[in-house]
Design a protein around this nucleic acid. Structure first.
Lengths: 234, 234
DNA sequence: CGCCGTTTATTTGTATGACAAATAAGCCAT
DNA sequence: ATGGCTTATTTGTCATACAAATAAACGGCG
């Protein structure tokens, strides 16, 4: 997932570097950055590349530039917390339980509601896609295959809500949690434990039973929560 | 809310202009933009300013640039749907009922859950802030005062969840809905209708009763939904 | 004729230098 | 001490040149 060798471009590197520094707190809120010319030289890039990066960080709410005053790190409350990069930087810098709890909390709120909505709105095609994903999970022989199918299942379910905001939100949360999922899965010997629960969710969505789908999903998420917590602690 | 006269900067204008064009569909997905030099001249800005804008749009997932190939508009599924700008552009370009419904749906999912979480986690200070907001609503003499206090109430409640992801998500939804709220409020003669429901939510959070808070909020949101729908149709 | 490596042409990426615009801070006169 | 004026500093914008990547054209070879 994480492209290690692939250095996409200079300004991309700068975005990553500065973003990480800010989100991790090494550059505290309110603190002002060196002026562009100096910062550019210090990072060994041209002012052009630096500025392109700063515009992006600015769009993410991390910094704020004004003429004469310079560029300052903004308060945490102004950050685009739901931006994929910002989330990734947080995951990298605070692998504490508390942040994982917040991610899981989001999941607990979103997924059951999404399951219920999907049960109400899914089209025939969407149901077929969901079934295909389930079958792939059932047929999975190794952990990697199962993980791929699992993600596909959740993706299909979200698309079946026909609300792209919901889809987008969850994909963000999922990505962030992915960091820890890898860990949790590596440890679990029998990875197909959750299969029956996925079946329950699928069946409820097929039969258009929102409340049944919601309850099944509540259970599934709460189970996986304890797994993730165990993995993070370890 | 919307700064009409304030033209922040050139690249900011470019971001807005191109962003709007893409989200509205006037620049279709897959379509490739003119090359930078041409596009810059066509928009009467330097290539530098244009590029700074394009990097931001790229970060929002709207476009994708590659050497030799040029810059293309990305599929809708790659957009950062939860980005404040993207949402704003959507609100501006598709004032259809269906999008409002999606926003309201998000609200129906988030707010009750947030109320319940706040009832569990709120600190004494956060409760005090919530009460202050409620008192301001009760004391409001005109619509503007009430609107400000109303927003403050919801803001306080979300902060009381102590989950900044939740806070951030809702503030985005709220901003987007704000466009329509204005309309709905203008028409309602007795704007203080919702006051008793806010009291119920506040009381439940004070007494640390998650389920009561959730139910009260469910009711409040569903009431406001019908108001908004009426307003949008009008 | 068709395949495959090479060259070329085009487009984005990066660097540099110059100037415009805004504005905080210092200065000066009152 | 205060209010307006000047100045110095920093970001904002522009123009130009070159580097790097790579799709497309080319050309040699089986």
């Amino acid at each position: 997932m994480v492209k290690l060798g692939a250095v996409r471009s200079l300004h991309h590197q700068v975005i990553q570097e500065l973003g990480r520094l800010i989100v991790s707190g090494e550059l505290a809120a309110g603190q002002s950055l060196p002026r562009e010319e100096v910062l550019a030289e210090r990072m060994s890039v041209s002012r052009t590349a630096l500025r392109e990066a700063m515009k992006v960080l600015s769009a993410k709410g991390l910094i704020e530039s004004r003429q004469k005053t310079g560029t300052r790190v903004r308060e945490e409350s102004h950050w685009n917390q739901l931006d994929a990069d910002v989330l990734a930087w947080r995951c990298a810098s605070m692998p504490t339980e508390s942040f994982v709890d917040k991610l899981v909390e989001m999941r607990e709120i979103i997924e059951p509601a999404a399951a219920a909505t999907a049960a109400r709105r899914r089209s025939t095609e969407q149901l077929a896609a969901l079934e295909a994903a389930y079958q792939a999970m059932a047929a999975a022989e190794d952990l990697d295959a199962w993980t791929v199918a699992d993600l596909a299942f959740h993706e299909c379910m979200l698309q079946a809500t026909n609300n792209e905001l919901l889809t987008s939100l969850f994909s963000v949360i999922e990505t962030a949690l992915g960091t820890y999922f890898v860990l949790s899965a590596r440890n679990s010997a029998n990875f197909k434990n959750a299969l029956p629960q996925h079946l329950k969710v699928y069946e409820a969505i097929r039969r258009r039973q929102p409340e049944v789908a919601r309850q099944a999903m509540v259970k599934m998420v709460s189970d996986s929560r304890s797994n993730i917590r165990k993995a993070v602690r370890a």
